[in-house]
Nucleic acid binder design. Structure first.
Lengths: 242, 242
DNA sequence: AAGTGGTCTAGACCACGTC
DNA sequence: ACGTGGTCTAGACCACTTT
Protein backbone atom coordinates (compact mmCIF):
# COMPACT_ATOMS: atom_id res chain seq x y z
CA UNK A 1 0.00 0.00 0.00
CA UNK A 2 1.41 3.35 -0.99
CA UNK A 3 0.92 6.61 0.88
CA UNK A 4 -1.45 9.22 -0.48
CA UNK A 5 0.58 11.64 -2.54
CA UNK A 6 1.11 15.17 -1.43
CA UNK A 7 4.85 14.61 -1.89
CA UNK A 8 4.84 11.20 -3.47
CA UNK A 9 7.50 8.77 -2.32
CA UNK A 10 7.55 5.26 -3.74
CA UNK A 11 7.23 2.30 -1.42
CA UNK A 12 10.81 1.16 -1.86
CA UNK A 13 12.04 4.53 -0.63
CA UNK A 14 9.92 4.25 2.46
CA UNK A 15 11.45 0.81 3.04
CA UNK A 16 14.88 2.35 2.51
CA UNK A 17 14.01 4.87 5.19
CA UNK A 18 13.02 2.13 7.61
CA UNK A 19 16.20 0.16 7.01
CA UNK A 20 18.18 3.37 7.42
CA UNK A 21 16.49 3.98 10.76
CA UNK A 22 17.40 0.49 11.90
CA UNK A 23 21.01 1.07 10.82
CA UNK A 24 21.14 4.40 12.59
CA UNK A 25 19.70 2.84 15.74
CA UNK A 26 22.49 0.28 15.60
CA UNK A 27 20.22 -2.71 15.13
CA UNK A 28 22.94 -4.23 12.93
CA UNK A 29 26.55 -3.20 13.43
CA UNK A 30 29.14 -2.44 10.73
CA UNK A 31 30.60 -5.62 9.27
CA UNK A 32 27.58 -7.74 10.25
CA UNK A 33 24.95 -9.30 8.00
CA UNK A 34 21.50 -7.85 7.89
CA UNK A 35 18.44 -10.14 7.51
CA UNK A 36 17.82 -11.70 4.09
CA UNK A 37 15.66 -9.97 1.53
CA UNK A 38 12.88 -12.47 2.17
CA UNK A 39 12.93 -11.82 5.91
CA UNK A 40 12.85 -8.05 5.44
CA UNK A 41 10.05 -8.42 2.91
CA UNK A 42 8.08 -10.33 5.54
CA UNK A 43 8.86 -7.82 8.26
CA UNK A 44 7.72 -4.84 6.20
CA UNK A 45 4.90 -6.65 4.39
CA UNK A 46 6.13 -5.90 0.89
CA UNK A 47 7.41 -8.08 -1.90
CA UNK A 48 11.01 -9.21 -2.07
CA UNK A 49 11.52 -7.12 -5.19
CA UNK A 50 10.66 -3.94 -3.34
CA UNK A 51 13.13 -4.68 -0.54
CA UNK A 52 15.62 -5.48 -3.25
CA UNK A 53 15.28 -2.07 -4.83
CA UNK A 54 15.69 -0.37 -1.46
CA UNK A 55 18.86 -2.34 -0.76
CA UNK A 56 20.12 -1.65 -4.29
CA UNK A 57 20.08 2.06 -3.58
CA UNK A 58 21.71 1.68 -0.21
CA UNK A 59 24.45 -0.43 -1.75
CA UNK A 60 24.98 2.30 -4.35
CA UNK A 61 25.24 4.77 -1.44
CA UNK A 62 27.99 2.62 0.12
CA UNK A 63 25.85 1.95 3.17
CA UNK A 64 25.44 -1.76 2.52
CA UNK A 65 27.54 -4.35 0.71
CA UNK A 66 25.97 -7.26 -1.13
CA UNK A 67 27.75 -10.60 -1.25
CA UNK A 68 26.16 -13.18 -3.47
CA UNK A 69 25.45 -16.45 -1.73
CA UNK A 70 26.26 -14.99 1.69
CA UNK A 71 24.03 -12.07 2.45
CA UNK A 72 24.01 -8.29 2.71
CA UNK A 73 26.45 -6.61 5.11
CA UNK A 74 26.61 -3.26 6.82
CA UNK A 75 29.51 -1.36 5.25
CA UNK A 76 32.48 -0.84 7.54
CA UNK A 77 35.60 1.30 7.54
CA UNK A 78 37.46 -1.74 8.83
CA UNK A 79 37.12 -3.10 5.32
CA UNK A 80 40.46 -2.32 3.64
CA UNK A 81 38.62 -1.47 0.42
CA UNK A 82 37.10 1.50 2.19
CA UNK A 83 40.44 3.23 2.82
CA UNK A 84 40.96 4.83 -0.56
CA UNK A 85 37.37 5.95 -0.77
CA UNK A 86 38.28 9.01 1.27
CA UNK A 87 42.02 9.20 0.58
CA UNK A 88 42.57 10.02 -3.06
CA UNK A 89 46.35 10.31 -2.87
CA UNK A 90 48.34 8.14 -5.26
CA UNK A 91 52.09 7.82 -5.81
CA UNK A 92 53.33 9.09 -9.18
CA UNK A 93 55.43 5.99 -9.74
CA UNK A 94 55.42 2.77 -7.86
CA UNK A 95 52.93 0.80 -5.94
CA UNK A 96 49.83 1.88 -4.10
CA UNK A 97 51.26 1.50 -0.61
CA UNK A 98 49.17 2.09 2.48
CA UNK A 99 50.09 5.15 4.50
CA UNK A 100 51.08 5.18 8.16
CA UNK A 101 49.29 7.60 10.44
CA UNK A 102 51.42 9.37 13.05
CA UNK A 103 49.36 11.26 15.63
CA UNK A 104 51.27 14.30 16.88
CA UNK A 105 48.94 16.17 19.20
CA UNK A 106 45.43 15.94 20.59
CA UNK A 107 43.83 18.60 22.71
CA UNK A 108 40.51 20.00 23.72
CA UNK A 109 39.38 23.52 22.83
CA UNK A 110 36.35 25.69 22.25
CA UNK A 111 34.88 25.99 18.79
CA UNK A 112 35.73 29.17 16.96
CA UNK A 113 33.19 30.69 14.57
CA UNK A 114 34.52 28.82 11.54
CA UNK A 115 34.70 25.39 13.19
CA UNK A 116 31.26 25.96 14.67
CA UNK A 117 29.81 26.74 11.28
CA UNK A 118 31.40 23.72 9.65
CA UNK A 119 30.37 21.31 12.40
CA UNK A 120 26.94 22.84 12.84
CA UNK A 121 27.48 23.54 16.56
CA UNK A 122 27.58 26.76 18.58
CA UNK A 123 30.74 28.84 18.93
CA UNK A 124 32.27 28.03 22.29
CA UNK A 125 31.05 24.45 22.29
CA UNK A 126 33.77 21.97 23.22
CA UNK A 127 35.74 20.42 20.37
CA UNK A 128 38.70 18.11 20.10
CA UNK A 129 41.58 18.92 17.79
CA UNK A 130 44.00 16.37 16.40
CA UNK A 131 47.20 17.00 14.51
CA UNK A 132 48.64 14.07 12.69
CA UNK A 133 51.12 13.22 9.97
CA UNK A 134 50.58 10.76 7.16
CA UNK A 135 53.67 8.94 5.88
CA UNK A 136 54.04 7.00 2.67
CA UNK A 137 57.13 4.79 2.58
CA UNK A 138 58.48 6.55 5.67
CA UNK A 139 58.27 9.98 4.06
CA UNK A 140 55.91 12.63 5.43
CA UNK A 141 53.35 13.55 2.77
CA UNK A 142 50.29 14.94 4.55
CA UNK A 143 49.88 17.05 7.68
CA UNK A 144 46.30 17.06 8.93
CA UNK A 145 44.50 19.20 11.47
CA UNK A 146 41.23 17.60 12.46
CA UNK A 147 38.35 19.24 14.33
CA UNK A 148 35.83 17.02 16.05
CA UNK A 149 32.75 17.90 18.11
CA UNK A 150 33.74 17.18 21.73
CA UNK A 151 30.26 15.95 22.54
CA UNK A 152 30.70 12.85 20.45
CA UNK A 153 34.39 12.20 21.00
CA UNK A 154 34.62 12.08 24.78
CA UNK A 155 37.46 9.64 25.42
CA UNK A 156 39.66 10.60 22.50
CA UNK A 157 43.26 11.13 23.58
CA UNK A 158 46.68 10.99 21.98
CA UNK A 159 47.26 7.61 23.62
CA UNK A 160 44.10 6.17 22.11
CA UNK A 161 45.16 7.47 18.71
CA UNK A 162 48.69 6.13 19.00
CA UNK A 163 47.59 2.69 20.09
CA UNK A 164 45.29 2.26 17.10
CA UNK A 165 46.83 0.67 14.05
CA UNK A 166 43.95 1.06 11.56
CA UNK A 167 42.53 4.12 9.86
CA UNK A 168 41.07 7.04 11.77
CA UNK A 169 37.59 6.32 10.52
CA UNK A 170 37.76 2.70 11.58
CA UNK A 171 38.75 3.96 15.05
CA UNK A 172 35.80 6.34 15.08
CA UNK A 173 33.52 3.53 13.99
CA UNK A 174 34.77 0.92 16.45
CA UNK A 175 35.41 3.12 19.46
CA UNK A 176 32.77 5.83 19.12
CA UNK A 177 30.09 4.09 17.08
CA UNK A 178 30.24 6.82 14.47
CA UNK A 179 30.16 5.89 10.80
CA UNK A 180 31.34 8.37 8.18
CA UNK A 181 29.01 8.26 5.21
CA UNK A 182 30.12 10.94 2.80
CA UNK A 183 32.43 13.93 2.62
CA UNK A 184 32.98 17.10 0.66
CA UNK A 185 36.46 18.39 -0.12
CA UNK A 186 37.51 21.89 -1.14
CA UNK A 187 40.91 21.93 -2.77
CA UNK A 188 43.24 24.87 -3.26
CA UNK A 189 46.93 25.54 -3.79
CA UNK A 190 48.73 27.35 -0.99
CA UNK A 191 52.28 28.16 0.10
CA UNK A 192 53.72 26.22 3.02
CA UNK A 193 53.79 28.19 6.25
CA UNK A 194 56.35 27.63 9.05
CA UNK A 195 54.42 24.90 10.77
CA UNK A 196 53.71 22.95 7.60
CA UNK A 197 57.25 23.33 6.31
CA UNK A 198 58.60 21.81 9.52
CA UNK A 199 56.15 18.93 9.56
CA UNK A 200 56.68 18.03 5.91
CA UNK A 201 60.35 19.02 5.81
CA UNK A 202 60.09 21.35 2.87
CA UNK A 203 61.08 25.00 2.50
CA UNK A 204 58.61 27.67 3.50
CA UNK A 205 56.63 28.90 0.51
CA UNK A 206 56.60 25.49 -1.14
CA UNK A 207 53.32 24.99 -3.06
CA UNK A 208 51.09 22.52 -1.27
CA UNK A 209 47.63 21.16 -1.86
CA UNK A 210 45.21 22.43 0.77
CA UNK A 211 42.37 19.95 1.18
CA UNK A 212 39.52 20.97 3.44
CA UNK A 213 37.06 18.23 4.22
CA UNK A 214 33.71 18.15 5.97
CA UNK A 215 32.55 14.64 6.74
CA UNK A 216 28.98 13.61 7.41
CA UNK A 217 27.40 10.72 9.26
CA UNK A 218 23.80 9.48 9.12
CA UNK A 219 21.23 12.19 8.59
CA UNK A 220 23.74 14.48 6.86
CA UNK A 221 25.10 15.51 10.23
CA UNK A 222 28.64 16.97 9.98
CA UNK A 223 30.95 15.32 12.50
CA UNK A 224 34.43 16.13 11.25
CA UNK A 225 36.15 19.11 9.76
CA UNK A 226 39.72 18.73 8.70
CA UNK A 227 42.32 20.59 6.78
CA UNK A 228 45.14 18.67 5.18
CA UNK A 229 48.25 19.99 3.48
CA UNK A 230 49.49 17.57 0.85
CA UNK A 231 53.01 17.46 -0.52
CA UNK A 232 52.59 16.63 -4.19
CA UNK A 233 56.18 16.04 -5.27
CA UNK A 234 55.79 12.29 -5.43
CA UNK A 235 52.04 11.91 -5.09
CA UNK A 236 48.97 13.41 -6.65
CA UNK A 237 45.30 13.69 -5.87
CA UNK A 238 43.42 11.41 -8.23
CA UNK A 239 39.84 12.17 -9.20
CA UNK A 240 37.59 10.21 -11.49
CA UNK A 241 35.00 12.30 -13.33
CA UNK A 242 32.13 10.27 -14.59
CA UNK B 1 18.24 -16.94 -23.82
CA UNK B 2 21.50 -16.46 -21.98
CA UNK B 3 24.95 -17.36 -23.27
CA UNK B 4 26.73 -20.45 -21.94
CA UNK B 5 28.95 -19.38 -19.08
CA UNK B 6 32.66 -19.41 -19.34
CA UNK B 7 32.67 -15.73 -18.37
CA UNK B 8 29.06 -15.24 -17.46
CA UNK B 9 27.43 -12.00 -18.48
CA UNK B 10 23.78 -11.44 -17.70
CA UNK B 11 21.35 -10.74 -20.49
CA UNK B 12 20.76 -7.13 -19.52
CA UNK B 13 24.47 -6.44 -19.90
CA UNK B 14 24.47 -7.89 -23.36
CA UNK B 15 21.55 -5.62 -24.20
CA UNK B 16 23.48 -2.73 -22.71
CA UNK B 17 26.32 -3.64 -25.06
CA UNK B 18 24.01 -3.62 -28.06
CA UNK B 19 22.50 -0.24 -27.15
CA UNK B 20 26.04 1.06 -26.61
CA UNK B 21 27.00 -0.13 -30.08
CA UNK B 22 24.02 1.66 -31.56
CA UNK B 23 24.96 4.84 -29.70
CA UNK B 24 28.56 4.55 -30.85
CA UNK B 25 27.43 4.01 -34.42
CA UNK B 26 25.42 7.22 -34.16
CA UNK B 27 22.05 5.58 -34.65
CA UNK B 28 20.62 8.16 -32.23
CA UNK B 29 22.34 11.52 -31.80
CA UNK B 30 22.96 13.38 -28.54
CA UNK B 31 19.85 15.20 -27.38
CA UNK B 32 17.49 12.91 -29.28
CA UNK B 33 15.08 10.32 -27.89
CA UNK B 34 15.87 6.65 -28.26
CA UNK B 35 13.07 4.12 -28.89
CA UNK B 36 10.77 3.26 -26.00
CA UNK B 37 11.55 0.40 -23.68
CA UNK B 38 8.80 -1.67 -25.27
CA UNK B 39 10.19 -1.11 -28.76
CA UNK B 40 13.71 -2.05 -27.71
CA UNK B 41 12.38 -5.09 -25.88
CA UNK B 42 10.73 -6.15 -29.14
CA UNK B 43 13.82 -5.46 -31.19
CA UNK B 44 16.09 -7.53 -28.94
CA UNK B 45 13.50 -10.17 -28.06
CA UNK B 46 13.71 -9.73 -24.33
CA UNK B 47 11.27 -8.52 -21.73
CA UNK B 48 10.74 -4.85 -21.02
CA UNK B 49 12.22 -5.31 -17.56
CA UNK B 50 15.51 -6.47 -18.99
CA UNK B 51 15.80 -3.48 -21.32
CA UNK B 52 14.89 -1.37 -18.33
CA UNK B 53 17.79 -2.66 -16.29
CA UNK B 54 20.19 -2.05 -19.18
CA UNK B 55 18.98 1.53 -19.55
CA UNK B 56 19.14 2.01 -15.77
CA UNK B 57 22.85 1.31 -15.84
CA UNK B 58 23.45 3.54 -18.84
CA UNK B 59 21.58 6.37 -17.14
CA UNK B 60 23.78 5.86 -14.06
CA UNK B 61 26.79 6.09 -16.42
CA UNK B 62 25.52 9.45 -17.72
CA UNK B 63 25.10 8.04 -21.20
CA UNK B 64 21.32 8.31 -21.28
CA UNK B 65 18.83 10.56 -19.52
CA UNK B 66 15.38 9.35 -18.55
CA UNK B 67 12.41 11.72 -18.64
CA UNK B 68 9.19 10.34 -17.26
CA UNK B 69 6.30 10.58 -19.62
CA UNK B 70 8.52 11.66 -22.49
CA UNK B 71 11.14 9.05 -23.18
CA UNK B 72 14.84 8.31 -22.82
CA UNK B 73 17.34 10.71 -24.36
CA UNK B 74 20.95 10.47 -25.42
CA UNK B 75 22.99 12.60 -23.01
CA UNK B 76 24.48 15.73 -24.54
CA UNK B 77 27.08 18.29 -23.58
CA UNK B 78 24.75 20.94 -24.93
CA UNK B 79 22.68 20.33 -21.85
CA UNK B 80 23.70 23.11 -19.43
CA UNK B 81 23.54 20.63 -16.55
CA UNK B 82 26.50 18.81 -18.10
CA UNK B 83 28.88 21.76 -17.75
CA UNK B 84 29.86 21.35 -14.12
CA UNK B 85 30.23 17.63 -14.46
CA UNK B 86 33.76 18.18 -15.74
CA UNK B 87 34.49 21.61 -14.29
CA UNK B 88 34.63 21.36 -10.53
CA UNK B 89 35.64 24.95 -9.91
CA UNK B 90 33.43 26.93 -7.55
CA UNK B 91 33.69 30.54 -6.30
CA UNK B 92 34.46 30.89 -2.60
CA UNK B 93 31.76 33.50 -2.13
CA UNK B 94 29.04 34.50 -4.45
CA UNK B 95 27.07 32.88 -7.16
CA UNK B 96 27.90 29.96 -9.38
CA UNK B 97 28.50 31.99 -12.51
CA UNK B 98 29.32 30.38 -15.82
CA UNK B 99 32.85 30.92 -17.09
CA UNK B 100 33.78 32.48 -20.42
CA UNK B 101 36.25 30.61 -22.57
CA UNK B 102 38.87 32.72 -24.38
CA UNK B 103 40.84 30.76 -26.98
CA UNK B 104 44.36 32.14 -27.30
CA UNK B 105 46.21 29.88 -29.72
CA UNK B 106 45.61 26.79 -31.80
CA UNK B 107 48.31 25.04 -33.76
CA UNK B 108 49.26 21.69 -35.18
CA UNK B 109 52.26 19.70 -33.98
CA UNK B 110 53.68 16.22 -33.66
CA UNK B 111 53.01 14.16 -30.59
CA UNK B 112 55.86 13.99 -28.12
CA UNK B 113 56.40 10.83 -26.09
CA UNK B 114 54.24 11.99 -23.21
CA UNK B 115 51.30 13.19 -25.29
CA UNK B 116 51.53 10.00 -27.36
CA UNK B 117 51.33 7.86 -24.25
CA UNK B 118 48.38 9.77 -22.84
CA UNK B 119 46.42 9.78 -26.10
CA UNK B 120 47.36 6.21 -26.98
CA UNK B 121 48.86 7.21 -30.34
CA UNK B 122 52.38 6.96 -31.75
CA UNK B 123 55.05 9.61 -31.10
CA UNK B 124 55.22 11.81 -34.18
CA UNK B 125 51.53 11.41 -35.00
CA UNK B 126 49.83 14.72 -35.74
CA UNK B 127 48.14 16.47 -32.84
CA UNK B 128 46.38 19.77 -32.35
CA UNK B 129 47.24 21.98 -29.39
CA UNK B 130 44.94 24.63 -27.98
CA UNK B 131 45.75 27.24 -25.41
CA UNK B 132 42.82 28.97 -23.83
CA UNK B 133 41.91 31.07 -20.85
CA UNK B 134 38.87 30.63 -18.63
CA UNK B 135 37.44 33.77 -17.07
CA UNK B 136 34.99 34.03 -14.23
CA UNK B 137 33.40 37.46 -13.86
CA UNK B 138 35.98 38.89 -16.29
CA UNK B 139 38.90 37.66 -14.21
CA UNK B 140 41.32 35.04 -15.58
CA UNK B 141 41.18 31.94 -13.38
CA UNK B 142 42.32 29.00 -15.50
CA UNK B 143 44.91 28.66 -18.23
CA UNK B 144 44.51 25.42 -20.18
CA UNK B 145 46.76 23.66 -22.65
CA UNK B 146 44.82 21.03 -24.54
CA UNK B 147 46.26 18.21 -26.66
CA UNK B 148 44.01 16.56 -29.21
CA UNK B 149 44.71 13.76 -31.68
CA UNK B 150 44.93 15.48 -35.09
CA UNK B 151 43.26 12.53 -36.77
CA UNK B 152 39.94 13.27 -35.17
CA UNK B 153 40.08 17.05 -35.04
CA UNK B 154 40.76 17.94 -38.67
CA UNK B 155 39.06 21.28 -39.12
CA UNK B 156 39.79 22.72 -35.68
CA UNK B 157 41.16 26.26 -35.92
CA UNK B 158 41.34 29.29 -33.70
CA UNK B 159 38.53 30.85 -35.72
CA UNK B 160 36.25 27.88 -35.12
CA UNK B 161 37.02 28.04 -31.42
CA UNK B 162 36.45 31.77 -31.21
CA UNK B 163 33.14 31.65 -33.02
CA UNK B 164 31.72 29.03 -30.67
CA UNK B 165 29.85 30.33 -27.67
CA UNK B 166 29.21 27.07 -25.79
CA UNK B 167 31.55 24.74 -23.95
CA UNK B 168 34.48 23.03 -25.63
CA UNK B 169 32.90 19.63 -25.24
CA UNK B 170 29.65 20.75 -26.80
CA UNK B 171 31.73 22.01 -29.75
CA UNK B 172 33.50 18.66 -30.00
CA UNK B 173 30.16 16.90 -29.85
CA UNK B 174 28.35 19.08 -32.38
CA UNK B 175 31.19 19.73 -34.81
CA UNK B 176 33.27 16.55 -34.59
CA UNK B 177 30.70 14.00 -33.43
CA UNK B 178 32.86 13.13 -30.47
CA UNK B 179 31.19 12.63 -27.10
CA UNK B 180 33.28 12.79 -23.93
CA UNK B 181 32.15 10.08 -21.53
CA UNK B 182 34.46 10.17 -18.56
CA UNK B 183 37.72 11.70 -17.43
CA UNK B 184 40.48 11.23 -14.91
CA UNK B 185 42.19 14.15 -13.22
CA UNK B 186 45.54 14.24 -11.46
CA UNK B 187 45.87 17.23 -9.19
CA UNK B 188 49.01 18.74 -7.75
CA UNK B 189 50.21 22.05 -6.37
CA UNK B 190 52.86 23.86 -8.42
CA UNK B 191 54.51 27.27 -8.60
CA UNK B 192 53.46 29.57 -11.45
CA UNK B 193 56.04 29.75 -14.24
CA UNK B 194 56.55 32.79 -16.50
CA UNK B 195 53.92 31.82 -19.01
CA UNK B 196 51.28 31.05 -16.42
CA UNK B 197 52.02 34.15 -14.38
CA UNK B 198 51.48 36.30 -17.46
CA UNK B 199 48.26 34.60 -18.48
CA UNK B 200 46.74 34.70 -15.00
CA UNK B 201 48.36 38.00 -14.00
CA UNK B 202 49.96 36.74 -10.82
CA UNK B 203 53.57 36.82 -9.64
CA UNK B 204 55.89 34.02 -10.68
CA UNK B 205 56.11 31.36 -8.01
CA UNK B 206 52.48 31.80 -6.98
CA UNK B 207 51.01 28.44 -5.86
CA UNK B 208 48.57 27.13 -8.47
CA UNK B 209 46.52 23.99 -8.83
CA UNK B 210 47.83 21.82 -11.64
CA UNK B 211 45.01 19.72 -13.03
CA UNK B 212 45.96 17.13 -15.63
CA UNK B 213 43.02 15.51 -17.33
CA UNK B 214 42.69 12.60 -19.72
CA UNK B 215 39.25 12.37 -21.27
CA UNK B 216 37.75 9.26 -22.82
CA UNK B 217 35.05 8.68 -25.39
CA UNK B 218 33.17 5.47 -26.17
CA UNK B 219 35.22 2.31 -25.76
CA UNK B 220 37.53 3.95 -23.21
CA UNK B 221 39.44 5.60 -26.02
CA UNK B 222 41.43 8.63 -24.82
CA UNK B 223 40.77 11.65 -27.04
CA UNK B 224 41.93 14.60 -24.99
CA UNK B 225 44.82 15.36 -22.73
CA UNK B 226 44.89 18.70 -21.03
CA UNK B 227 46.77 20.49 -18.35
CA UNK B 228 45.10 23.32 -16.53
CA UNK B 229 46.60 25.74 -14.04
CA UNK B 230 43.95 27.03 -11.66
CA UNK B 231 44.21 30.19 -9.62
CA UNK B 232 42.57 29.37 -6.31
CA UNK B 233 42.45 32.77 -4.64
CA UNK B 234 38.74 33.18 -5.17
CA UNK B 235 37.77 29.71 -6.33
CA UNK B 236 38.32 26.18 -5.22
CA UNK B 237 38.09 22.72 -6.66
CA UNK B 238 35.07 21.00 -5.15
CA UNK B 239 34.95 17.24 -4.81
CA UNK B 240 32.19 15.11 -3.39
CA UNK B 241 33.34 11.87 -1.82
CA UNK B 242 30.60 9.34 -1.51
C1' DA C 1 -7.12 9.02 -24.65
C1' DA C 2 -2.75 7.29 -25.66
C1' DG C 3 2.12 6.80 -24.91
C1' DT C 4 6.10 7.08 -22.02
C1' DG C 5 8.81 5.87 -17.97
C1' DG C 6 8.12 4.36 -12.78
C1' DT C 7 6.49 1.10 -9.31
C1' DC C 8 4.96 -3.22 -7.40
C1' DT C 9 4.07 -7.97 -7.43
C1' DA C 10 4.72 -13.11 -7.92
C1' DG C 11 7.03 -16.86 -9.57
C1' DA C 12 10.72 -19.40 -11.84
C1' DC C 13 15.31 -20.27 -12.32
C1' DC C 14 20.62 -19.33 -11.96
C1' DA C 15 25.15 -18.53 -9.48
C1' DC C 16 27.54 -18.63 -5.32
C1' DG C 17 28.79 -20.02 -0.63
C1' DT C 18 28.17 -23.09 3.29
C1' DC C 19 26.89 -27.11 5.63
C1' DA D 1 20.90 -29.93 0.03
C1' DC D 2 19.92 -25.47 1.38
C1' DG D 3 19.97 -20.46 1.80
C1' DT D 4 21.62 -16.24 -0.10
C1' DG D 5 21.67 -12.74 -3.59
C1' DG D 6 21.18 -12.21 -9.01
C1' DT D 7 18.46 -12.55 -13.25
C1' DC D 8 14.41 -12.84 -16.14
C1' DT D 9 9.68 -12.74 -17.11
C1' DA D 10 4.74 -11.14 -17.37
C1' DG D 11 1.20 -8.44 -15.92
C1' DA D 12 -1.10 -4.75 -13.38
C1' DC D 13 -1.31 -0.25 -12.13
C1' DC D 14 0.62 4.72 -11.21
C1' DA D 15 2.59 9.29 -12.63
C1' DC D 16 3.78 12.38 -16.13
C1' DT D 17 3.49 14.43 -20.84
C1' DT D 18 1.44 15.14 -25.14
C1' DT D 19 -2.33 14.95 -28.40
Amino acid sequence: MIQESPTFSPLYRQIKGLILQALEAGEWRPGQVIPSEQELAGRYNVSQGTVRKAIDEMAADNLLVRKQGKGTYVASHNDPRALFRFLRLVPIDGELSSPISVPLECWRAKAGPEAARMLDIRPGDPITIVRRLLKFAHKPVVIDEIYLPGEVFQGLTLEVLQSWSGSLYSLFESRFGLRMIRAQESIRAVAADRSASEALRVPEGKPLLSVERVTYTYGDKPVEWRRGLYLTDEHFYLNELS
